[in-house]
């Protein structure tokens, strides 16, 4: 059952990701990305990481993608022809080559690296309490640095916006 769901959501996520890149309409791309995030959240839930799953849904699918959609709709982006017209063929070749190299690297690593045996999650894994405890003990420094970084970004955004008005 769990395996079936994993494959279902995984395939859907892959499909959404690929379709998002291939789609020419910005809004469709954004919606496919939301679908992708939704599937990721379901995968997190299958891994017993409920808090992460809900946060993924809440923050990425629920807030950030709404913002992206908002901007797309505000600018009224419709279907566009490719922006790059010069050297298109050579760029495509380079892109395919780079992607192939990436895939090969990943595959070779997967072959050699010893994957950790999956084990049942311990009781209380993924709960709000457990995640909070880890976040504020072991990872408190990265957490605080991230918050300062975000604060700086907010202040910067406000400054940029203010100079324009």
């Amino acid at each position: 059952m769990e395996l079936l769901m994993f494959y279902g959501f995984g395939l859907l996520a892959l499909f959404a990701g690929v379709a998002m890149i291939l789609s020419r309409q910005p809004v469709t791309s954004a919606l496919l990305m939301i679908l992708n995030m939704f599937c990721l959240s379901a995968l997190y839930a299958l891994l017993d990481a409920h808090l992460i799953a809900v946060l993924q849904l809440l923050v990425y699918a629920g807030a950030i993608m709404v913002l992206v959609l908002f901007v797309i709709m505000l600018l009224n982006l419709r279907e566009k022809k490719g922006i790059i017209t010069k050297h298109q063929a050579s760029l495509q070749v380079v892109g395919v080559a780079a992607f192939g190299f990436f895939v090969m690297t990943v595959v070779s690593r997967l072959n050699t690296a010893a994957l950790p045996k999956s084990k049942a999650a311990s009781a209380g894994f993924g709960t709000v309490e457990a995640v909070g405890r880890i976040l504020f003990t072991d990872y408190v420094l990265p957490f605080e640095i991230a918050s300062v970084l975000l604060l700086a970004a907010i202040v910067g955004a406000v400054m940029l916006a203010k100079s324009k008005v």
Binding site: F38, H50, L51, V54, L55, L57, L58, A61, G62, A63, V66, G126, T127, V128
Partner: peptide, 13 residues
């Protein structure tokens, strides 16, 4: 366990 957060997540969808 995440309770209300689930409501928020769903509402945001």
């Amino acid at each position: 366990d995440v309770g209300v957060l689930f409501v928020f997540a769903v509402a945001s969808i």
